[in-house]
């Protein structure tokens, strides 16, 4: 009893840094397992097998089987692998755009005004609508979704970076560098980049779950990945037709897996933000 009590409180007793490190390692392990698994998975279990159709969760089929007798666990793993890849690529694209625009805004006030206008423009249009538009323009599929999500998620990070860069630019050490004859590019590379690196890392981590969710939403609506790809959005969209027949496991397990991944990343982003911000590091 005592040892159980101890175990329950052990996690609570850890400080934020240890907790975050633990969550990061667990998530990294999980992601790696999913991505590697999705490449080497035995595809024979996701071929049509009618005798096994509509089976509930069991030891043999952890997440059950669908209306064509395909193993839902294998499909979910493959789908998650694809979703994570789309999310990773999209968040990297978003981060690159945000960093470039953030640094450009420090060049002069006209570029700054333009960047500000661009941020307002992209923020004023609903993400989903823009992703659908871009994705359709690029012919859909994984490429369309990645570019669509990448081109729409940079605004909040760009806004944060722009504000941060403005603050650094008014510091005495940047003014001193200018007085020593250093160019704007030199200052951006040597002064600004190292100081905004934390914001960039946190920004990328926080964009990731958004990107995955939006990829799944767009695919669910039928504008994203093509139906033959086992993405979570496709799985959820297809399973909607069978929910009324009582096959709850078709949507429950893939949805839950997606939710866990998204929440883990949100948690990492929030905790890192707290740890790296000196004003509330002791919380």
């Amino acid at each position: 009893m005592n040892s159980e009590k101890y175990k329950r409180f052990a996690f609570k007793k850890m400080n934020l840094r240890t907790k975050t490190l633990l969550i990061i390692s667990l998530t990294a392990l999980l992601l790696l397992a999913i991505v590697i698994n999705s490449f080497f998975i035995d595809t024979s279990s996701i071929t049509t097998n009618f005798p096994l159709r509509n089976m509930g969760p069991s030891l043999e089929h952890l997440f059950g089987t669908d209306w064509m007798g395909r193993d839902m666990f294998t499909r979910t793993m493959k789908g998650l692998g694809l979703s994570i890849q789309v999310g990773a690529f999209a968040s990297i694209i978003s981060t690159i755009i945000a960093v470039v625009l953030g640094l450009l805004s420090s060049m002069n006030k006209y570029i700054d005004l333009f960047v500000n206008w661009l941020i307002d423009l992209f923020s004023s249009i609903p993400h989903l609508l823009l992703i659908i538009l871009i994705s359709i323009c690029l012919g859909g599929g994984a490429f369309g979704v990645i570019v669509g999500v990448g081109l729409t998620h940079w605004t909040s990070l760009a806004r944060v970076l722009r504000a941060e860069i403005k603050q650094i630019n008014t510091s005495e050490y940047v003014k001193l560098s200018k007085n020593l004859g250093k160019s704007k590019l030199w200052i951006a590379r040597k002064h600004l980049l190292p100081l905004i690196l934390t914001q960039i890392v946190i920004g990328t981590i926080l964009i990731f779950p958004h990107a995955i969710m939006h990829e799944a939403s767009v695919t669910f609506l039928g504008f994203g990945l093509s139906p033959h790809e086992p993405a979570i959005g496709v799985i959820l969209s297809e399973s909607m037709k069978y929910l009324a027949t009582g096959s709850w496991w078709l949507a429950f397990f893939p949805g839950l897996s997606l939710l866990i991944i998204v929440l883990l990343f949100d948690l990492i982003g929030d905790n890192l933000q707290k740890i790296l911000d000196p004003t509330n590091a002791h919380e």
Binding site: S171, E172, N179, L180, G181, S183, H191
Partner: peptide
């Protein structure tokens, strides 16, 4: 964009260092 021949040393050195 060139070295200023008039250099200033500030009262608070910590503010002038990244």
């Amino acid at each position: 964009n060139k070295f200023n021949p008039i250099q200033l040393i500030f009262q608070h050195p910590e503010l002038t260092m990244n």
